[in-house]
Amino acid sequence: MDDKVLLSVRNLQTHFELRRGVFGRAGVVRAVDGVSFDLRHGEAIAVVGESGCGKSTLARTILGLYRPTKGTVLFAGRPLDGDLRWYRAQIGYVQQDPYGALPPFMDVHRILTEPLVINNFKGDREQRIREVLEEVKLTPVEDFVHKFPHQLSGGQQQRLVIARAMILKPKFIVADEPVSMLDASVRVEILELLRGLQSSHNLSVIYITHDLSTVRYFTERIFVMYAGKIIEKAPVTELLKNPLHPYTQALLAAIPDPDPQNAVTMKKIPPGEPPSLVNPPSGCRFHPRCPAFIAGLCDQETPPEFEPSAGHCVECWLYR
């Protein structure tokens, strides 16, 4: 196996059982359904996709919060199963809603002490708390250390969440839509902060977002997710310039741009809605909405991963 690979995900599936009443089974939600990728040391990737496509479930499965139904996750060559305590200290989790992510009854100091206590941090705790607060620029530290979450602004709360994720010096951070709940003016600062931390600590990052315009900030590769599957993987510039999958093309076309012409013309967006994850369409999951759909193939067979150019993978029969 490649030495530089930090996280290796193979055919990951996370399904949730739907219950009806006490005994009835109403079906299975295939939130993540066969995802494979490798994440290298110090690499930042973005996972994009619309709401309900399984992005957050993927993130939480990788974090070990949900048990995968099938498939494997290897972290530094070690599988995630059984007791995950060794793994917890190596990953950081940055959540979407910073206010909800912070326990309201703990002050900044307590919030940052918790991971140190839980993971049995050896060394000067006070020193580490000070360092990490300076790193996320909650300074002067004295002003913040005894504040409660509700006394902080949204941006400060998100800095605190990042500080908590960073305090154990993890190798790897999962950021689940870290800026979508913030004001536009604060977003850039938080993204800059994440990028700074990523490069100074050589962090691997999985950045989950539905907003393609923030992807360019610090990621190297983009994964496009649709209905529980990653349908296209490519380096950022390559994907933005030369999207292959019809869904990606539609997604890029939907990025708003400040062109006065937009007021008079409507953009072409794929018809229909994202498919149900309980009964996904047969074959390629995008085929009911796809403009380039090949009858007899796309609706019958699930496309495997093709690699039309080096480093650019796509699950679409058009590139067979």
Binding site: R60, L63, G64, L65, L84, R85, R88, A89, I91, Y93, Q95, Q96, D97, G100, A101, L102, P103, P104, F105, M106, E114, P115, I118, N119, V161, R164, L168
Partner: peptide, 28 residues
């Protein structure tokens, strides 16, 4: 189901710790 309970779980807190230190104070 709150995000901060999930955060505590992600940082490796034991169930007892989550119940008594992270959730219980909210019922104070």
């Amino acid at each position: 189901e709150q995000e901060f309970a999930l955060a505590a779980k992600a940082m490796g807190a034991s169930n007892a710790r989550i119940i008594f230190k992270h959730l219980l104070p909210n019922t104070l």
